[in-house]
């Protein structure tokens, strides 16, 4: 099994003659967490979208060198928008996420609800939850979906300290099991619970 999961090679992105990203290259490794940091508008989210396959880069390549042909099917992406339906309950949202990936396992959902202390809210419509609780519902997807790489845009935003702790614990466990994390933040992060490589995105 290759230690490098995905290689990002000379990625550039421009829109309307503005260069958003220029020759970005780095590697995402197994059992490693990588934090992309930079100022607002530096292109962090654009880069995540490219790696997740949502946006096409102007030039450059995303190479799968993991040895696993299905790596791009095993990415869990959580962007600025949480990707949950307001008119579905917490449990229904998680359940349909599993169905979308041809999985079905109520035990996984119960476990995720338990970890994020949301079991009592499982039958509540997500539109009636707070911003932070909605974020937790989206983060729970990382726990229920079969994945090798989590791509999360600003995972700590809207979360309280207790929830950040829970998230960090789940990340540590995921990394210990050979998973990889790619996340963004506005600044370099230190003293993280898990080993975190910081990569600065320059405008």
């Amino acid at each position: 099994m290759h230690n490098i999961v995905i290689e990002i090679q000379d990625i550039s992105l421009s829109r309307n003659d503005n260069n958003i990203l220029e020759d970005i290259s780095f590697k995402i490794e197994r059992s490693k967490a990588l934090n992309l940091y930079g100022l607002n508008g530096s292109g962090k989210t654009s880069l995540l979208n490219i790696i997740a396959g949502i946006t096409e880069p102007t030039s450059g390549y995303i190479n799968n060198i993991s040895g696993d042909e299905n790596i791009f099917h095993k990415i869990v992406y959580i962007g600025h928008k949480y990707g949950i339906k307001g008119n579905l309950t917490v449990k229904e949202n998680l359940s349909y996420s599993l169905h979308d990936n041809n999985q079905n396992n109520d035990a996984l959902i119960s476990n995720a609800l338990d970890i994020y202390k949301m079991t009592d809210l499982k039958n509540r419509l997500t539109k009636n939850l707070s911003h932070g609780q909605q974020k937790k519902v989206s983060l729970m997807k990382t726990l229920i979906l079969d994945s090798l790489l989590w791509i999360i845009d600003e995972p700590y935003s809207a979360l309280d300290n207790k929830s950040i702790e829970i998230f960090n614990t789940t990340v540590k466990k995921f990394l210990d099991n050979g998973g990889s994390l790619l996340m963004t933040s506005h600044s370099e992060m230190k003293n993280s619970l898990f080993a975190l490589d910081n990569y600065r995105i320059k405008q």
Binding site: N49, A52, G53, I54, Y77, G79, H80, K81, Y82, G83, I84, K85, G86, D100
Partner: peptide, 8 residues
Amino acid sequence: DGTLEMFL
């Protein structure tokens, strides 16, 4: 709501 991004 962002589900389109996951869909794509």
